[in-house]
Amino acid sequence: MKLERNKRVKKLAVWTWSWVATMAIATFGPEFIWDGHPFLTAFAIIVNLANGILMILANRDLFNHFDELEKKIHLESMAISLGLAVVVGLTFSLLDQQNLIPFDADIGFLVMFIGITYLVSMLINTRRYK
């Protein structure tokens, strides 16, 4: 069971890191590597998207390998993260529309917020069942 788990965790880590790498290439490549060539830019974005889909599939594969308690912990954490992302994300967007915050409501903030809420929810839920 542990060997199977480790195999899936490694697979997810590989796809996650390569997704981050292809994201960096797609972001900075047009400016620093290929001088804004539209075909190369589109190609880099498509490669990043395909890599992201493979990362999601690896994540689903790992999730399906979890046992019942682990699935419950992850599902509760996902529910909290998703709910907070929708509510806080829209509040953030409203604040931006009404010019009540001194910066733009960038998608990066929401992604960071989801990551942090998921991590905190996981820690709290894991402690609850210890």
Binding site: M1, D67, E68, L69, E70, Y129, K130
Partner: peptide, 12 residues
Amino acid sequence: EIIGVSRQTINA
């Protein structure tokens, strides 16, 4: 190991 769950699950 026998049941096919994690040790944390047995503990819980």
